[in-house]
Design a protein around this nucleic acid. Structure first.
Lengths: 345, 345
DNA sequence: TATTAGCACTCTACACGGCAGAGTGCTAAT
DNA sequence: ATTAGCACTCTGCCGTGTAGAGTGCTAATA
């Protein structure tokens, strides 16, 4: 689809004005505010053409125009100019990541608060997913004769603890020995690399504790399933209510359903599996519940591997220019933070 | 305030009908549905008296009556009959707590889902507060020359992990020795009992690792402050939207603010510090943000100590009879669960 | 040929008024 | 002490009218 320059200017004006005002945009408004040097009548003609192409639409006869979802797409792909963050805003982002050596879970929570201030959309994060990150260490702590606590630490600084109940008594020595062998063999491997087949190699070494090893391996495998990857962090729900599209209680209910079930948000984040920013507008989303929303996602990395993702969700009429800048800046800072010397795991 | 029997019946009818219908209750409705054996006119006379006493009020001239906050209070104190749960509902509760030997955090999350199904209100829980529960074990796991992971396990089955950064290198042996001494001295003490003064007694024993001990103690103290007690679990936000009082977007915004900031909910739970159920109606709440809500709280116990609390929040017009039954049943089951043999820490 | 002024037309949002229905308060009768 | 009856009031709803915003079309203009 090729547009002459003036049509592009008109489309851009319609999109940007509607993003700000949430109202249909009239030809007069564009002529006055965007100084294209032509009269409203000319703009009306251009608008009629744009409407025919499916880039803008009229909510009802004789109203102004609003962008269609394809209109937003054209805008995002070809017209949008990245918006710059102010020095102050960049400063705030750097401050969050300046704190060396903190638990990642805390950092993620601070980041969410920050993004909540920087934009008016719903922010959500997946914590570093274990299956994608490498094992740093496993510890087994005896709690009772038939019970132990398994602590798993990933190289991304993620800590998971899991209670294990045995059907037979185990000694502290057994636990120590098993943990020792596990660490020796698996340190540095990603969790998806630690499969049953690899694991079988340690059976010989631990033939005496075979039953115990079985229990432990079961727990490690259960961590590997995405079902367990519990770390979904989110914030900014009440921000979204500022948007006029959420005046209707029905919309709000849909949004809260999204937030409470978390399932869809997880899905969105796991769809994000390549570097760079992804923008999905309305029906471009696979998930039915967000097909009247705009969604921006990006991943963050450690040592060349994707370890987690971030999402920003708002109405279709969201400020894509600003939102994508924020997402990009945050994920890049987070990746840099993870690779920094502070995280010397 | 003493009411004759018929006034009590009328008040009860007004409260219970309004709880169901959310509409002002007319004299005719009461005469028809609650069979007091008198005509609407008589009921109107009684209502005029009840209004004069401040127990019910008229939203506008010539409308039916709704209970005032004092009216609800009178109802809760003297008229309300505990509602029974069905066998099925009791069964659901027992099922959640039947699973032996699971992490408490998981159990709490299942409980929230359950209560969300049993009532239409906002449910929230504080996890067992460390300062109120006893230490089971501390472990220090070396991660890097100047960094360790401190894992703290309480007798309630709560696991906290905390990263510690040292300004000097420490050896695994040092860590092991310190953990050993800490466990020896403090196992079984509650966290509030582990104060600096008690701690000083171990300095002699660990004179060589004095600096290291200082670091560790600092972390343990930071766990003690309520600011850290991070475990607030909640659910059911979208349930509350079913209530007609939340048709107004303004109300919804206030509710979400409550949910997102969490501060007020924490406060409400820490106000609950005695056994039994507390019902606070509207302005009886200390917290301004919930003065148009009804709040029911109760604590749960382990070994005679209060270790956490649960809250249920809805509009002033909430079903106190049912809600308080649910709260009571859940907290009792949770207390029993914690004391059960399953938790043999 | 591209642009624009002008005008008729359409649609929305809001205010107004009338009306039915629900409910009360009061009075007088029982 | 209770109740029937009646006048009164308030809400919610529906239909109407109107102002304002915005378009589409046509004819004039550069």
């Amino acid at each position: 689809m090729q547009l002459n320059q003036r049509k592009q200017q008109v489309l851009e004006a319609v999109v940007e004005d509607h993003i700000i005002s949430a109202e249909p945009v009239s030809s007069r408004t564009i002529a006055r505010k965007y100084q294209l040097g032509v009269s409203p009548a000319t703009i009306r003609n251009e608008m009629a053409d744009l409407e025919e192409m499916g880039l803008i639409e009229q909510p009802h006869t004789s109203s102004g125009r609003i962008p269609s979802q394809q209109g937003y797409r054209y805008y995002v792909d070809r017209l949008m100019r990245r918006s710059e963050l102010t020095e102050d805003e960049e400063g705030q982002i750097h401050t969050v990541f300046a704190r060396q050596a903190h638990e990642l879970a805390l950092t993620v929570q601070h980041t969410i608060k920050l993004v909540t201030r920087l934009t008016d959309y719903l922010v959500f994060f997946s914590g570093p997913q274990l299956e994608r990150s490498a094992l740093q260490q496993v510890q087994l702590i005896a709690l009772a004769p038939q019970r132990a606590l398994m602590v798993i630490i990933s190289e991304t600084g993620w800590v998971e603890s899991k209670l294990v109940d045995f059907s037979f008594p185990v000694t502290g020595e057994d636990l120590e020995q098993v943990a020792g062998v596990l660490n020796e063999h698996f340190r540095g491997l990603t969790f998806s690399q630690i499969t049953r087949t690899v694991l079988s190699s340690i059976y010989q070494e631990l033939s005496r504790q075979r039953l115990l090893v079985d229990y432990v391996l079961e727990v490690m495998e259960s961590l590997n399933t995405s079902e367990h990857s519990d770390g979904l962090y989110l914030g900014g729900t009440r921000n979204v209510l500022k948007q006029p599209e959420y005046q209707d209680i029905q919309q709000v209910r849909k949004l809260l359903e999204l937030v409470e079930s978390e399932q869809t948000l997880r899905e969105i984040l796991s769809d994000a599996n390549h570097e760079g920013i992804t923008v999905r507008i309305g029906r471009e989303n696979r998930q039915g519940q967000v097909q009247d929303c705009g969604v921006i996602t990006a991943v963050y990395m450690l040592g060349g591997n994707i370890v987690g993702a971030m999402g920003l969700l708002g109405p279709v009429r969201m400020n894509y220019a600003r939102a994508s800048t924020v997402v990009e800046c945050i994920t890049q800072s987070l990746s840099a933070f993870l690779s920094s010397s502070g995280n010397c795991f």
